[in-house]
Design a protein around this nucleic acid. Structure first.
Length: 971
RNA sequence: GCCGGGGUGGCGGAAUGGUAGACGCGCACGACUCAAAAUCGUGUAUCGUAAGGUGUGUGGGUUCAAGUCCCACCCCCGGCACCA
């Protein structure tokens, strides 16, 4: 009641203004009034522990850039706001926090440009962001705000690093890494664009050997892969992670080398990695990368003429690599060395080839041109032998099959470039080539020649080529038996069209017709897997790269690819190996604005972690935080910070002491991804000095139930999963995954369809929009403009629709009456809005409410029904609905009201419109009572003019009636 | 090339195999107004005066009925890319 009186007083002072603006209500006053009131009432304060059902709704926390917010930024925040308000109204305790990801390069670059300290810049930017956000009416509990640059926060980032080190998951490396010459820092692979440029500044990234801290994320690759299945994430993201992790199961084999001149590395063998160990007998040459060749040179190898030049040239070429979209032409050179295939004992040449890459596998491959496209392309170019060792397998393998031998013959008319096909009709397999069974030991060419003559009469033909045996499995329905066919495919050329009388019986002849098909027709009409494969191999001259049965593999003929992969590793001294495309995480940056490593070294360079009791290691103030570009961080110049006296505790950690030895601090800083890899935990327990998070709080609030943000499929979402799993292993968290459900948001583009940027001058500032239309209109429009996950351009005209809607809902207040025409529509709306919010389908939820409002405007509705509408709209338009709620005489906040329930019985309408179809075409509609039985519907339909016109006295062949929907009469 | 996602009016977009284009913008006309804005009303896929025909990227198919299911292809967006 107090609120109500307060509001009356407020109206008295301000209402005149709103009449002037010709709007039903004055959003500026109302927005501010309620935002202040919610704030002073602590409406959104989250309790320390959830009392009942909990839900943790999280936005990807923003990077507080100097540019401020544009209208695209709040889209996700509005969605989580709606979702969390909805959940709160459904009786959940909601954790919905916000914070700042403020370390990292952009903040530092902004600071450098504007000549202010990054800490000050970050403070200003956060203040600006917070001010902009505050106008939107979001329900964050700001008492839980966190900031990754706050020492009380990064203390725990450092703590996690010391734990990673303890568990052997952090190590130093001098391997060449990605170096951005413009940002003057090392980068993780994840920070490098597809085209080899820096993700931040688009400068060409170089390889540079720098001492680096690296995290062993590859140790978690398998778990990260398998646990993907447990996540309610968009399939695309899961797939992207799967590809990024890039697990491949294979084997390594040693090929011993012969004819090596002065190769002093002593091993005299080359190690290859393959995922196709089953094709070992088909390895007809070895190909090594230019990198591997260089290593051999360094080890003292003297080679034949031209090889060294080729290697140098290739290395140069590969370092350029600007255009990633074009696969370069394969080149190579014979090295003069030969290798022994461990399976066949044969001597095969070793080539150096540009398509073999140094960083992949072992940098050397066994080339199997018969079963690998790249090897095949290379072998064709350099005339290297192709040896098929896998017999293709088509169809579905049958149990207890009948064995048969057969041929598939393709007759080619070169002049017309057409292929002879037999059309058996739809039910007998459609178009095939010529097929037939082999009699006993009959030669396949003779057999095929005979079949062609028998079935088509052509006799003047020339044999061209044939395949190895293909195994084809199918179920012969006519004989009710599974079959396994050993087929040979053959290609013949038609010399002339001399044709004999087809020797088959008349009734046999009538079963099929012969047709000449063009290439295009063949590809669309020949559906049979075996016949299509024969065509692919003989006409298109493609190789078979799938699994199958072994042939030409000595004693192993007849076993499957799977069996061979296991057997060959044992038999030929191979080793099973699992490789990942993902590499360990380069975790150091040579910049100022990041978390310092809690690491010191003694004068022998031995590394110690700073003792937990002395964390955080504070980022020191520094005069110049410009990058040095030497691979050293600016911190290295601060000698009285770098040099620190102390001692090593019996735990092996470092503690400061003025009379101790001198140690030197690590001067690299952590990458921006460090803080964001665990921040979501801290929101649940933001002020805990003693622990990263209290176990009780962790158990009650975590994991994040719904995580909303932009597409970070392969970086943030990989790193956070890795750290979370590690924290699970050291018992800091009790779940194996951090984010149960993930919802991506589509971006908002500028009205011109381009990205919003200051440079293009097309930025739309939410402050301006809110000023003109109010926060509620802004919120409703952003949610209504397109499906949530879809990118869409801003429209300064379309927003008027949302504005009108808000205004009309407010105006409806005047129409409250004692009667109702909308009860059915209202209950449908309650159902749909609830279901849609749950699924993040905000656009259709709003559209349903618009439909209801239209119906209310046309008909009549009660006070209670109006209250229900306002309640449904409350999560979307919190200010206006709170205002109405208050004006309706309620004394508590609408945001504490229970979500309305729908009445199943009221979802049903009294009557329903049936559409009349005649032969599937719409010919009219009519209304019948809901639930009318079929005969009633038919009788009603017969009354229609269109029924009389189209059906008349004709007898319908068939009448299909879909209850409450339609009647279709087939005549 | 491979893997995702998508292709529906002038625009953003709706459609459990069952009236395609809900809802909104825009546009046109009308009401109110001296006038405009705002607001309200009516109309708005397309061809046709009409009856009716045609329409969800293209071509086939399944079905009484296809935007929706199946096959082939084209185009757009995103990711990966000589990964052995």
């Amino acid at each position: 009641m107090e609120d109500f009186l307060l509001y009356r007083e407020f109206l008295f002072h301000n209402f005149i203004v709103s009449i002037d603006t010709m709007k039903s209500y004055d959003h500026k006053k109302i927005d501010a009034y309620w935002q202040d009131k919610w704030q002073s009432d602590s409406l959104y304060k989250t309790s320390e522990l959830p009392q009942g059902k909990k839900i943790y709704v999280l936005d990807m926390f923003p990077y507080p850039s100097g540019e401020g917010l544009h209208v695209g930024h709040p889209k996700g925040y509005i969605a989580t706001d709606i979702y969390s308000r909805f959940k709160r109204m459904n009786g959940y305790d909601v954790l919905h926090p916000m914070g700042w990801d403020a370390f990292g390069l952009p903040a530092e670059q902004f600071a450098l440009k504007h000549k202010i300290h990054p800490r000050i810049a970050v403070e200003n930017n956060i203040a600006n962001f917070k001010n902009q956000l505050s106008h939107i009416g979001l329900d964050y509990d700001w008492s839980r705000e966190i900031n990754t640059t706050d020492p009380t926060f990064y203390k725990w980032t450092q703590w996690i690093f010391t734990k990673l080190y303890e568990k052997g998951l952090a190590y130093e490396s001098h391997k060449p890494i990605n170096w951005c010459p413009s940002c003057k820092t090392g980068l993780a692979n994840e920070d490098v664009n597809h085209d080899g440029t820096c993700e931040r500044c688009d400068t060409k990234v170089e390889k540079k050997p720098i001492r680096q801290w690296v995290l062993k994320i590859t140790d978690y690759a398998d778990r990260m892969l398998t646990d993907l299945d447990t996540l309610e994430w968009p399939e695309g993201v899961k797939l992207a992670q799967k590809n990024w992790i890039g697990r491949s199961e294979g084997a390594e084999f040693d090929f011993s080398l012969t004819d090596v001149k002065d190769h002093t590395d002593g091993s005299m063998s080359v190690k290859v990695f393959t995922t196709r160990a089953d094709t070992l007998f088909g390895a007809t040459f070895i190909a090594i990368s230019a990198d591997t060749a260089r290593e051999w040179f360094n080890a003292g190898w003297e080679t034949i003429d031209g090889v060294k030049e080729y290697v140098i040239e290739t290395l140069e070429e590969q370092n350029k690599e600007n255009d990633y979209s074009v696969v370069p032409e394969k080149t190579g050179v014979y090295s003069g060395i030969n290798a022994i295939n461990p399976a066949t004992g044969e001597k095969i040449p070793v080539w150096i080839a540009n398509y073999v890459l140094g960083g992949v596998g072992t940098g050397a491959i066994m080339a199997v041109p018969a079963h690998d496209e790249r090897d095949f392309e290379f072998a064709k170019k350099y005339n290297l032998p192709v040896k098929q060792v896998i017999s293709p397998e088509t169809g579905v393998v049958q149990t207890n099959p009948e064995f048969r031998k057969s041929i598939v013959a393709i007759l080619w008319d070169k002049k017309q470039n057409k292929f002879l096909s037999i059309n058996w009709g739809k039910n007998l397999g459609g178009n095939l080539f010529i097929g037939g069974g082999v009699d006993g030991d009959e030669d396949s060419i003779i057999c095929a020649t005979r079949e062609i003559k028998e079935e088509t009469g052509y006799t003047h033909i020339r044999y061209l080529s044939k395949t190895e045996v293909i195994h084809h499995n199918y179920f012969a329905h006519s004989k009710n038996v599974g079959r396994r066919i050993e087929a040979v495919g053959l290609l013949f050329e038609l010399i002339d069209d001399t044709q004999e009388e087809v020797s088959l019986e008349e009734n046999e002849k009538n079963k099929f017709t012969t047709e000449w098909l063009s290439k295009q027709e063949v590809e669309s009409k020949i559906e049979d897997a075996l016949h299509a494969l024969v065509y692919t191999m003989l006409v298109k001259e493609e190789i078979y790269t799938g699994d199958g049965t072994l042939i030409s593999s000595g004693e192993h003929d007849g076993i499957t690819s799977d069996e061979a992969r296991n057997r060959f590793v044992e038999k030929y001294s191979g080793k099973k190996v699992i490789k990942y495309k993902m590499e360990d995480w380069v975790f150091a940056r040579q910049r100022y604005w990041g978390e310092p490593f809690p690491v010191v070294r003694d004068n022998n360079g031995k590394v110690y972690m700073v003792d937990e009791s002395e964390l955080p290691v504070l980022l020191p103030e520094v005069k110049s935080y410009e990058p040095t570009g030497t691979g050293e961080s600016p911190l290295a110049a601060i000698t009285d910070w770098v040099n620190v006296r102390g001692y090593i505790t019996n735990k092996g950690t470092f503690k400061q002491s003025n009379d101790g030895e001198i140690f030197t601090r690590e001067t690299n800083t952590m990458p921006q991804w460090a803080g964001s890899s665990w921040y979501y935990l801290r929101f649940a327990d933001p002020h805990n000095d003693a622990a990263l998070i209290s176990p009780e709080i962790e158990k009650n609030w975590l994991p994040v139930d719904v995580y909303v943000g932009g597409d970070h499929a392969t970086r943030h979402l990989i790193y956070a999963r890795f750290w979370h799993k590690f924290l699970y292993d050291i018992r800091v968290v009790s779940t194996t995954e951090p984010f149960s459900r993930l919802e991506f948001l589509g971006f908002i583009l500028a009205e011109d369809g381009r990205k919003m940027s200051k440079r293009l001058g097309n930025v739309i500032n939410p402050d301006d929009v809110i000023n003109e239309y109010g926060a509620d209109t802004f919120r409703v429009y952003e949610m209504f403009m397109a499906p949530f996950d879809q990118t869409v351009a801003w429209s300064t005209t379309s927003i008027k629709g949302a504005d009108k809607f808000i205004d009309r809902v407010y105006s409806l207040q005047k129409k409250i009456s004692e009667t109702s025409t909308v009860s059915n529509m209202l209950h449908k709306t309650i159902k749909k809005v609830g279901e849609d919010i749950e699924k993040f389908k905000f656009n259709t939820a709003i559209s349903q409410m618009m439909i209801l409002v239209n119906a209310m405007e046309e008909g009549s509705f009660t006070h209670e029904e109006y209250s229900t509408l306002v309640t449904l709209l409350a999560p979307f338009a919190p200010h206006m609905t709170e205002q109405i709620w208050n004006e309706l005489g309620n004394t508590t906040s609408i945001h504490k009201v229970s979500w309305p329930l729908y009445d199943e019985s009221l979802l049903v309408e009294d009557s329903t419109t049936i559409s009349l179809q005649i032969n599937g075409k719409l010919r009219g509609t009519f209304v019948v009572p809901f639930g009318s039985d079929d005969s009633t519907v038919l009788e009603e339909a017969k009354i229609l003019e269109s029924y009389k016109k189209y059906v008349g006295e004709l007898k319908p062949k068939k009448v299909i009636i879909i209850k409450n929907r339609l009647i279709n009469i087939v005549i």
